[in-house]
Design a protein around this nucleic acid. Structure first.
Lengths: 189, 189, 189, 189
DNA sequence: CACTAAACGAGACGGTACGTCTCGTCTTGTC
DNA sequence: GACAAGACGAGACGTACCGTCTCGTTTAGTG
């Protein structure tokens, strides 16, 4: 049979509580117990939806991801890449940054979860850069043979900053990084 | 006054136990309680030395760091950088990799700790690359204006890999990264 | 709301473990930790029921108290009092004696707890004597004006013995005490 | 060899610290560790003098005991007994009361210690009453056959009060108790 | 309309780890 | 040798989460 349907209000309450806790107290202060308490929901209701903290974060982040802008396409590699990076970095300075840090913390504690994050969340961001590079490659602009390395050059420093110095992710840094990556992408004989 | 000196055997037992636990069971399986139990030492003896897990890892890693080789200096930028990266990545495939992951996990849970890690451990690695770049710059080879960005290009992807795909850190990846970074460093007009 | 009801088996296991520990190892050997371990119950389960050791003992003793015989009423003051004292002292020679000692130890470390013990456990015993004295007083036998002092004469020596010489609490001692108290109760002009 | 003699200042500091702690924080707050810290003395210096908390208390109490008045001897049983009890009870309302409570707590946790307390400290108090009763017995006033029971009638209620209601030990209570005990002592045919 | 099945809040449960405290012993260097 | 200092193993303290498990109650469909 069907049984009682899940209450969407509960869904929202959980996500909201998770978000609140993580922004107010960081990953440390975000516990399944705390989420339930804060949202006025039973622990079971949380565990019914998510197998663990990681999945909660993943879901909360997905909400942000859904509202994100599409990949820029101005015909200019530098402009496209810069726009994307500026937007991405700007987000990392806000709530999504805290969520990504939490995500990283979870991933470090469960390799299987790291895999999921990689394929579900990170892949999308990488795709965006891959598209930009692909278009530039079609225009003969990009000569570097391996997109993946270039993409690592873009996002590696971002995660590095999230780990040890989140304040670094400014527009200026986005620009510097963009230039360096473009140089690496376009100056291979 | 002096008081009874700390027993070096206890120091070693703690470090060894921490190392064992982290390599066998990962960051998750490493607890202050477990370290004490495994090393046959009282919890107090552990807490007397380290205020938390993070500091233990930091200290264990320091032992590895101390035994690390000096910065290569062959007069050839590519060879120097490649050697350094290959060595560093090779280490990340082993025990130090697990330790670094643990370190990252801790750093994510305590920003103050992230700062310490940054200045005490990471700085040394960055210095090595800075020296290599500096020498090449003296030879007129490096034209990119900002060492820091270049260094981020080197280590960003490494941490990124440690977070989501540690298996990526092969010699081949070290080579690809080296080439990309050198391109970025040397092709700025 | 209701929530999952407490498991009575856990209640019993805790009480039994506490009882075992206190009889086998005395108050010293009875710890919240030990109770949990011995009963195969989590520490939380214990702390959920009792805020501290004292309350555990109090509860264990209550079980004994509930099964105690009613106040004797033969119409003869000496017989009534003697019976009560013999029974009470006999109990002190057994498990309840150890429990009472533990109770005293706890009471000495927390005045607030002493108050509780006084009103919840000791009061019942005093009431029994008060009833016996009251009936004798109705028969014109007891002339001493203050029951409370007489009751202190009865139980004071008992606690004194529990503190320093538990072996003293024999039937003979009960008889000697009974006689002395009756003399004090009945020979006031 | 003789070695360095013990520093009397250390002796005093320990006793003073123990006294302070016990009066300020009760038995709970009196720890060997605390005594050492408070007195500015090493733990070893404390343990060198006393095998445990109990002995410290015993020693501190002994100082008080030494300064106590001699057994009253006015030729009047009631007056002698009343004086003794009033003085004794008055002391229990003060610092010696707290010390006695601590003593009781210790005795409950180590039967062997209870024995020592009994023979060293309590015996003196009992002797005093025994002397008073003896003199009255010589005058043909006391007819009760057993001094020990009478002495229990005197001190039992005192310890009982120390356990559960220290406030009870007033002059009025001393008087009531004196009268009851004298009745018991003098009205046996 | 009754029945069924799942969701829901509440909260108990066995675990595990946390960080702190005190115990009684020991090991330094200094006096 | 006493002494201050403080390390050491042991073990209890009380708390916090984990993920699972009852409870009794509500809320849809389905028959």
């Amino acid at each position: 049979m069907t049984g009682r349907p899940r209450d969407p209000a509960v869904d929202d309450a959980i996500r909201q509580a998770a978000l609140d806790l993580i922004t107010e107290q960081g990953y440390r202060g975000m516990s399944m117990e705390g989420i339930a308490a804060r949202s006025g929901v039973s622990k079971q209701a949380v565990y019914r939806r998510y197998p663990g903290k990681g999945e909660v974060i993943l879901d909360v982040l997905a909400v942000y991801a859904r509202t994100r802008l599409p990949t820029p396409d101005t015909g200019d590699l530098r402009e496209d890449l810069l726009t994307l990076l500026e937007e991405t970095f700007a987000a990392q300075r806000g709530v999504p940054g805290a969520l990504n840090q939490a995500l990283a913390a979870e991933a470090l504690q469960a390799p299987a979860f790291a895999q999921r994050v990689s394929s579900e969340l990170i892949a999308a961001r990488r795709d965006a850069v891959r598209q930009i590079l692909g278009r530039a490659r079609d225009r003969g602009q990009v000569t570097h043979p391996d997109d993946e390395v270039l993409i690592d050059l873009v996002f590696g420093p971002m995660w590095y900053a999230l780990l040890f110095d989140a304040g670094k992710l400014t527009d200026a840094y986005a620009a510097a990084l963009t230039d360096a990556v473009i140089t690496a992408a376009t100056h291979v004989p």
